[in-house]
């Protein structure tokens, strides 16, 4: 199926979960990433159980602590 990750179209396996996508995408500090699917945040407890569907738009939001 096709999904969009961070604005980029990708072909992924059917039934892919959010946690599997996090692994696939090599997300940095995965335990602290915020994930949104179709402009809704997914609770981190729900990463395992959230199955992605065709056309889903996934975003990863990262902590960025610097500034000075």
């Amino acid at each position: 199926m096709k999904i969009t990750v961070a604005g980029e179209k990708k072909e992924v396996a059917d039934g892919l979960t959010v946690s599997a996508l996090i692994e696939l995408e090599n997300v940095e500090t995965p335990q602290y990433v915020t994930v949104s699917v179709n402009e809704e945040f997914v609770d981190s407890e729900g990463f395992e159980s959230t199955v992605l569907r065709e056309g889903d738009e996934v975003e990863f939001l990262y902590f960025m602590g610097g500034g000075r």
């Binding site: 500090t29 602290y32 945040f41 939001l61 902590f63 610097g66 500034g67 000075r68």
Partner: peptide, 18 residues
């Protein structure tokens, strides 16, 4: 709304470290 709580100390690098 995006990040519920700060990450634990030293869990995410800062500019000085990174």
């Amino acid at each position: 709304c995006i990040f519920k709580n700060p990450p634990p100390k030293d869990a995410v690098p800062t500019c000085k470290q990174a």
